[in-house]
Amino acid sequence: MRKMASIATGLGLVGMLAGCGTTGVNRVRPDEFAVARQAPLVIPPDFSLVPPAPGTAPTSSTNPNAQALDALFGGSAARSASETATVDAAGGDSAAPGIRSDVGDPDTAVVDKGSTTRDIVAAPEGDGQDARTATPNP
């Protein structure tokens, strides 16, 4: 049995090697050595930039916080048709204006559900085999 397996393996390898020869179907392949060298990319100098003087204030025109808010919430840019359709499908026309600001406001009234709800939400997933109920001590 072992001898037959080695013979079959040998014949299979010979068959695969024969498929690599040029006597079979001769396909047109790209020449991997016919690659033209391109000039390396060069960043042109920007003559309008000057190095900052020591001890001077930064010259950036916008506040980083404003840039972050524009990136997150779109700034004053108009919405695309697909974004408008998505917001409308999600009920964006019925949302209260400024809801993002109200949610993070410290004066917003929230209900403290207590540690039980927090424990339920933070509980690991499982099949329930290890679940136990807590009984108060008498």
Rank of each mutant, 00 (worst) to 15 (best):
P51C: 06
S76I: 08
L17Q: 06
G21T: 07
A122T: 14
G128V: 01
L72M: 09
P30R: 12
A68W: 12
A77V: 07
G12N: 13
T9W: 14
T23P: 06
G75P: 00
A71S: 14
Q67P: 08
S80A: 04
D119R: 10
R27K: 15
S115V: 14
I7N: 10
E83V: 05
D88P: 00
C20Y: 05
S60K: 11
F47E: 05
N26M: 14
V111E: 13
I99Y: 15
E32K: 09
S60R: 07
I99S: 12
A68G: 07
T62V: 11
A77M: 04
T117N: 12
D46A: 09
P44T: 03
D119T: 07
G128W: 05
A18C: 13
D93A: 15
D102Y: 10
L69M: 14
E125N: 11
P45M: 03
E32F: 10
V87N: 11
R37C: 01
I7E: 09
Q67V: 15
T59S: 09
K113N: 15
A5N: 13
A68V: 15
S76T: 12
V35D: 02
S101P: 01
I99A: 12
T56R: 06
M16Y: 14
R2P: 03
A5I: 14
L11G: 11
R27V: 15
A90S: 04
P97R: 02
M1H: 14
A77P: 00
R2S: 13
A131S: 03
Q38M: 13
F47N: 03
F33W: 07
Q129S: 13
G21F: 12
T116P: 00
A123S: 07
A66P: 05
I43F: 09
K113A: 13
K113E: 12
N63Q: 07
T116S: 15
P45N: 07
G98V: 00
G12F: 08
E32D: 12
A90N: 05
P106D: 01
M1V: 13
R2M: 10
V35M: 09
D70G: 09
Q38G: 06
A57D: 05
Q38R: 08
V35H: 05
T9E: 15
T22L: 09
V42W: 04
L11F: 10
K3T: 10
T22Y: 06
R118D: 08
P124E: 08
P97Y: 04
P106S: 04
V121W: 07
R29Y: 11
T9C: 07
G55E: 01
G19V: 01
V35L: 09
A18W: 10
G128D: 01
L41M: 06
S82I: 12
P106Y: 04
A81Q: 09
P97E: 07
T135M: 11
A34I: 00
G55S: 01
I7S: 12
A77I: 03
A18S: 11
A5L: 14
G24H: 02
L13K: 06
L13Y: 03
T84W: 11
P124M: 03
S80P: 00
Q67W: 08
G92T: 01
A90T: 01
A96T: 05
L49E: 13
I99C: 04
I43R: 08
D107T: 13
P106N: 05
P54M: 06
S61G: 11
G114R: 04
A90Q: 06
A85L: 02
S82E: 12
D130L: 11
D46R: 07
S82P: 04
L17H: 02
P44E: 02
A123W: 02
K3V: 12
L49I: 08
A53Q: 06
A66D: 12
T116R: 07
